[in-house]
């Protein structure tokens, strides 16, 4: 069989494969013929050594079946293998956590607790003032205004504490996630 006959037969046998696959495969086998020629073999010899083109095509088809695609996906999913953290990574995570993250976290928690308590006091005071406003007598207007001011302050304080708690949780999560990432992938 000549090179051309061999490649033609192989192309026919590969039939059901995509154009790109066939093109690549034919390119590979054509190169094999060229290398064989450089090594001093005739086309017939090279073709004989390559084996039956229909067997070769069958081998190609075997290798490209559904399980291959599945395996590819599985490997991709399994790829982020657990890497042992290096000592530098451990030191980095531990030191940052102990000396920066925990003090900052405790401080922020304290501030937020302060805000929340303050806000509770203000709101309670405002409500109490408004409830008792009929006892103000001549100071009714100023008492009401003071009460309303405190109430708005209370609402404002509620918003502040809501957002500070929310972002405190978000920040804590982010910190834990980023430290996990550092732990897994190194610094």
């Amino acid at each position: 069989m000549t090179k051309k006959e061999y490649l033609d037969k192989l192309t026919r046998e590969l039939g059901s494969m995509s154009y790109n696959d066939v093109k690549e495969i034919i390119g590979d086998i054509e190169n094999h013929f060229d290398e064989s020629a450089l090594a001093g073999k005739t086309e017939e010899e090279a073709a004989a050594m390559l084996g039956d083109p229909s067997e070769l095509a069958a081998d190609y088809k075997d290798g490209m079946t559904f399980p291959t695609i599945m395996k590819k996906k599985e490997q991709k999913a399994a790829k982020p293998a657990v890497k042992e953290p290096t000592s530098a990574t451990i030191a980095f995570v531990v030191l940052i956590t102990i000396f920066v993250a925990i003090p900052a976290w405790v401080t922020l928690l304290g501030i937020i607790l302060g805000i929340v308590l303050c806000e509770l006091g203000v709101a309670a005071g405002a409500v109490a003032l408004l409830l008792t406003c009929w006892t103000y007598g001549p100071f009714l207007t100023s008492g009401l205004l003071f009460g309303l001011t405190l109430l708005f302050f209370g609402i404002f304080g509620y918003a502040v504490s809501y957002f500070s708690i929310k972002y405190f949780i978000v920040a804590t999560k982010w910190y834990i996630d980023s430290m996990k990432k550092v732990w897994k992938n190194g610094i």
Partner: peptide
Amino acid sequence: LSSKIQMSDGTVYPILRKLAAEG
């Protein structure tokens, strides 16, 4: 390979292609 194992030269090409597809 074919100098050590009795086989067709062609056999390695599908193997190489499969190994490449699997990464």
